[in-house]
Amino acid sequence: MAHARRLSLAQRRKSVGLSQDGLAEALGVERSTVVRWEAGKTEPQAWVRPELARKLQLSEEQLDDLLRTDEYGPESVDRRVFAGLATVLALAPLTRARNGSQIGATQIRQLRQRTARLRRLDDHLGGMDTYQVYTSEMAATARLIKTASYSSSTARALTGVFAEQAQMAGWAAFDAGRYVESRRHYKTALIAAQESGDPSLHGNSLAFMAYEKADIQTAAESTRIAGMRATPRVRALLQERLAWTYAVSGQVSATARALDAAVAAVNESSHFPEPDWVFWVDPLEIDIMAGRCYTELGRPARAVPLLDDALSRYDDTHSRDKALYSTWLAHALMDGDDPERAAYVTEHAIDLASGVGSVRPGERLRGILSRLARYGGPEVAAVLERARG
């Protein structure tokens, strides 16, 4: 199925009179990138999709249809699952599925604990490694929703767990370069979060979608949905993702306001427990996001100290993330006219990214290396030579 889908992409390119070289040049990417899209090895990234759609004379929705594979898996049952779940919530306190076992608070607690453990795989593994794990877990929970018996309160908790798992699958798909799948998982997570009645989870589903497309409107909606009753770390996460969308669009003042709100939230004390899905949100995370935002805004004097300090406290065992964040530091250093140090940072990022099951470090590094190639000097030449090797 994947091969047929890619043939459709190649056929559309040819039908509008574009060669692989021509399309790559028009989009500002390497020809090898177009080759990988058409070979089914990666998906076009979110940032390039609007222009790709224009070059192929398609709407973005038509492009999604062109890229969509029929071989999908667990989400083929999602709509039916949620239709049934909505009925569960509206019916009597206990609904029994045919031949189903009854589940309650104990099973929900175990599911949450298992989901929390699986979530932490993302600390050290890439989406290529975790995607099938997460989608398999989704499928198991979907079967439970369909076949088990539970009360309406358990139904809400169960669909909340499913929403978290769909978010994890969407993130893993995004990290693996499977952008059609990531969008589909995020939409599933949004439906599930709405069904669960959890505003924070609902807001986080929107924030995932906003982050992938740098969509200010969706990011702002995520903060509104979650509201001020959300716990501090949830508000910090949603505000930093709002800041990112502002930064990508070049809005300096709005970015600073959102970052300030994130800093205030993450340092706020609270007696309420945080959801597990924000376990990783802390002041270090906000500093890294601030550095990335100021790099996007072309403010190296702000970005470099933030990223230098944050990365000095970031363990190399988080190799994918540290490699990614180092690429923003390298860009900021070049913006500040320090290509020698940028070359050193890039070399370390190459080491960290080696063997990581994620397309994102490689994609970021290609942009860094292309920019470094404009500079001279032995440090830069050595890194470029190593990259070619």
Rank of each mutant, 00 (worst) to 15 (best):
A254I: 07
R257A: 13
V263C: 08
A264E: 14
A264S: 11
A265V: 01
N267V: 05
E268C: 08
E268V: 06
E268W: 10
E268T: 15
S269M: 13
S269I: 11
H271C: 07
D276A: 12
D276H: 12
W277N: 08
W280F: 13
E285M: 10
I286L: 11
I288Y: 11
I288N: 04
M289Q: 14
M289H: 14
G291T: 08
R292Q: 14
R292E: 13
C293M: 01
T295S: 07
T295G: 01
E296Y: 03
G298P: 00
A301E: 13
A301G: 10
A301T: 08
A303Y: 04
V304Q: 00
L306D: 09
D308V: 00
D309Q: 14
A310C: 09
A310M: 04
R313C: 12
R313Q: 14
R313S: 11
Y314E: 11
D315C: 11
D315A: 15
D316S: 14
D316F: 07
T317I: 15
T317D: 15
H318V: 06
H318G: 11
S319N: 13
S319A: 15
S319T: 12
D321T: 10
D321L: 02
K322V: 10
A323I: 03
L324H: 10
Y325I: 03
Y325E: 09
S326I: 05
S326D: 05
T327A: 01
W328D: 09
W328I: 01
L329S: 02
L329V: 05
L329I: 01
A332N: 00
M334S: 02
D335P: 03
D338C: 01
E340P: 09
E340D: 15
R341K: 01
R341A: 03
Y344L: 15
V345G: 00
E347H: 14
E347T: 08
H348M: 04
I350E: 04
S354I: 03
G355E: 11
G355Q: 12
G355Y: 09
V356P: 06
S358M: 06
V359I: 03
E363I: 02
E363Q: 06
E363Y: 03
R366N: 04
G367R: 09
I368S: 01
S370V: 09
